[in-house]
Design a protein around this nucleic acid. Structure first.
Lengths: 344, 344
DNA sequence: TTTAGCACTCTATCTTGCAGAGTGCTAAAA
DNA sequence: TTTTAGCACTCTGCAAGATAGAGTGCTAAA
C-alpha cells in the first residue's frame, strides 16, 4: 500500500479526483488525456488507470464506465496531491463582512452567522459546536436582591457566559452577611472550570457555610442545574438543505437518514468532538468516520479558541466527493476570523 | 356554493375524505360502496360523485382515476362532517408524561419538548413560537456593579424573561445616585410592554436624566438592543423529517423548498402569527394560506397562554391530506397541558 | 330512482431496441 | 520496452411500444 506512486500516476489520480469532484460523473481516459494535456493518448492513460484501480485508488461503478476515486484515493489526494485553494476576493469579503463588520455582542449570534457563512461558501452543511459552558472557568458569582422575597443569582465565566436565575429567599439576610458569603464563594471557586465544580466540592462548601445554608441553597441549585442543563451543548447547523443539491443524495431515503441525524443534537456533538483535534484541521473520509450514518460522507473539522483556550468545534459535512481544498481554505479563514472576533 | 348537500352526498364526501386521508390514493366508487355499506351500488355512488365534482368538492387527477377531495371539500369536511377524534390512552400518556412529569424550569425546554411531542403524535412537522418577549410587560430594571469599570444591567419582565448585558461604565457613579436613577426608570416603565418602550419614549427619558446620561447610555443600549435583537423570535421546529414520509413530498424539489422554508425563522414567525387567532384553533387549508410556499399544505394553529395572557402560537404543518380530527385533538390537549404547566 | 353492463381512457410497468460512452486487449509503431 | 491505434465488447440510459388494471361515463333495463 505504501509503494510510492510514479509522478505520472499521481498526475492522473489528481486529474480523476479533481474532475470527479467537479462533475460528479465517472471520469474516462479520454477526458483525462484531453483536458490535462500531458502528451499521452487515452490508451496509455487507460493502462495507468487500470493500475491505479489495482492499487486501490480508483474504482469502477460498472465495467464500461469511467473511474471514480475510492476512499483511499481521496485520502492520497488530500495528503499528497491537493494544492491549496486561494479564496477569491468575493469569498474573502463574504466571510469577513458577515463576521467582523457588525458589532455582535451575542456569542450565539456570532456562531449562527458563522454556520451560515461556512455552509454557503462551501455549499455543504456546516455544524458548529457552541462554546462549552462546562469547560469555562468560574469567574464571578453575584447575588442581587430583587425584593424582600427574591434575589437574582448571576454566574459569570471567563468566556463571557452569563447565567442567571431568580431564587426565592426564605430567610432574610443582611447586606453585609450576604456580601460575606458571596465573597467567600468567589474566593473558593475562582478559576475553576465548571466541570471541576463537582457536587462533592459543593457539599464541602455547604458544610463550611452551614449557618447560612438555607438562603444559599438556591444559589447552589443554580450551580448544580447549570451542570446538568448544559450537558447537551447546542450545535448550530447551517445549510442543511445543501445536501439536497448533491447528486449522491437524490435518494429520498438517504435524505431522510441524514436529516434525522441533524435532529439529534447530542449525537452531532459527539461526532464533532470525537473527530476533531485542537491543533489543526482534521479530514475524516468515508469509513474513517466512526459513526455509521456518515460513512458515505466526509467530515472536516477545526476548532476555534478564545485567548488560546479551545472553545468549540467547527465542522463541514458532505459527500466524500467534496471540494476538499476549498472547504479547508474556507474553514481555515473562518476559524481565523472567529478567534479574532471572539477575543475582543 | 352554499346549496346544502343532501345527507347522502355528505356521507359520500366524508367517506372519500376519510379514505383519502388514510390511503393517499384516489378513492373509487367501488371502494366507497363496499367499505361504507350504505346499501348503494357503485354506479349510484358514481353519479353522486360526479355531482360532488361539479359542485367543486371533489376532483379527479385524470379521467379514469378515483376522486380526491378538493380544497373546498376539505373545508366542508372540517366545518361540517368531521367527528372529534378521541385520543387513545397511549397518546394521552405520551403528551402528559413528556410535559408535566419532569420539573422543567426552563421555558425553552418546555417549548422544545412540546414541539417534539406534537410532531411525533401527529406525524407532521410542528412549529412553536416561543414566548414573545416584545409583548411582555416591563417589570423591573436593575443595575448591578461588577467591578470599578463594569456593571450588569438586568431587565425582568412579567412573563419571567430575564435579559442581561454587561456594560462598561466610563464614569463612576455613587451607589445612591445609581439607585435614584434606576428607581426613576422603574417607575416610568413599569407595566409597559416592551413594544411600548419606543425610542421616542427612551429619548424622553434621556432628556429627563441628561445629567447622568453618560453612564446610562449603556443601559439604554440594552433596552434598544433588546428591541432589535428579539425582532426575530425563535420558532421551535419538531419533526421536520416527517414531511419526507408523506407521499406528496416524494419530489426532491418540493422537499427542498419546504426545508428551505424551515430555515427561515422570521418567515415562519410571520406565517404563524398571521394565521393564528387568540381564541381557538384555526385551520388554514391550501390556498387559504397567504404564503405561496405552503399553499399545498394545511396549517393548523392554536395559542398558549400564561395567566390568560397569550404568549405564543403552536402550529402543525403538513399536506392538505392530513388527519384533521387527530391533529386538532392532539393540539387542543397539548395546549391545555402547556397552559397549565406554564402557569405554575 | 337505482342498477347492471360495457366500452373507453388513462396510468404504471415491463420489454425491447438502440445510441453513446468507455473499457480491455492485441498488434503495430516508436 | 513503451506508447499508440484500432476494434470488439459491455453496460447504461432513454425512448417506443405492449399490456394489465383500475375506474369512469353512459345506456338501457329493473
Amino acid at each position: 500500500m505504501a509503494a510510492p506512486l510514479s509522478e505520472r500516476k499521481q498526475q492522473i489520480l489528481r486529474a480523476v479526483v479533481v474532475n470527479y469532484i467537479k462533475t460528479a460523473e465517472p471520469v474516462g481516459s479520454r477526458t483525462v488525456s484531453r483536458a490535462y494535456k500531458m502528451g499521452l493518448s487515452s490508451a496509455t492513460i487507460r493502462n495507468e488507470m487500470a493500475d491505479l484501480e489495482d492499487l486501490g485508488y480508483l474504482s469502477q461503478p460498472h465495467t464500461s464506465a469511467g473511474r471514480i476515486p475510492s476512499q483511499t484515493g481521496y485520502r492520497y489526494y488530500v495528503d499528497n496531491l491537493m494544492d491549496p485553494d486561494d479564496l477569491s476576493a468575493d469569498d474573502e469579503l463574504a466571510i469577513s463582512s458577515s463576521l467582523s463588520t457588525e458589532k455582535m455582542r451575542e456569542i450565539e449570534q456570532i456562531i449562527n452567522n458563522s454556520a451560515r457563512v461556512l455552509s454557503s461558501a462551501t455549499n455543504q452543511t456546516s455544524l458548529i459546536m457552541g462554546p462549552q459552558f462546562r469547560k469555562s472557568a468560574f469567574h464571578q458569582l453575584r447575588i442581587l436582591p430583587l425584593d424582600e422575597k427574591r434575589g437574582l443569582v448571576v454566574l459569570i465565566t471567563d468566556t463571557g457566559f452569563i447565567k442567571n436565575k431568580v431564587i426565592d429567599m426564605q430567610q432574610q439576610l443582611s447586606q453585609a452577611e450576604l456580601h460575606q458569603v458571596v465573597s467567600y464563594l468567589n474566593q473558593k471557586l475562582y478559576g475553576l472550570t465548571i466541570d471541576q465544580v463537582t457536587s462533592s466540592l459543593i457539599n464541602e462548601l455547604k458544610r463550611d457555610l452551614f449557618k447560612r445554608l438555607e438562603i444559599l441553597e438556591q444559589a447552589f441549585i443554580l450551580l448544580e442545574e447549570s451542570l446538568k442543563e448544559e450537558k447537551q451543548i447546542r450545535v448550530f447547523l447551517g445549510g442543511t438543505t445543501n445536501i439536497l443539491n448533491q447528486p449522491e443524495f437524490k435518494d429520498v431515503d438517504k435524505i431522510r437518514r441524514m436529516l434525522n441525524l441533524f435532529e439529534q443534537e447530542p449525537l452531532l456533538f459527539k461526532i464533532l468532538e470525537d473527530s476533531s483535534s485542537e491543533d489543526d484541521i482534521v479530514v475524516s473520509i468515508g469509513e474513517e468516520n466512526e459513526y455509521e450514518d456518515i460513512q458515505e460522507c466526509t467530515l472536516i473539522t477545526g476548532t476555534y479558541k478564545i485567548h488560546d483556550k479551545t472553545l468549540g468545534t467547527v465542522g463541514v459535512l458532505g459527500p466524500t466527493r467534496m471540494d476538499y481544498s476549498r472547504v479547508i481554505s474556507v474553514m481555515r479563514r473562518l476559524v481565523g476570523y472567529l478567534n479574532q472576533s471572539l477575543s475582543s
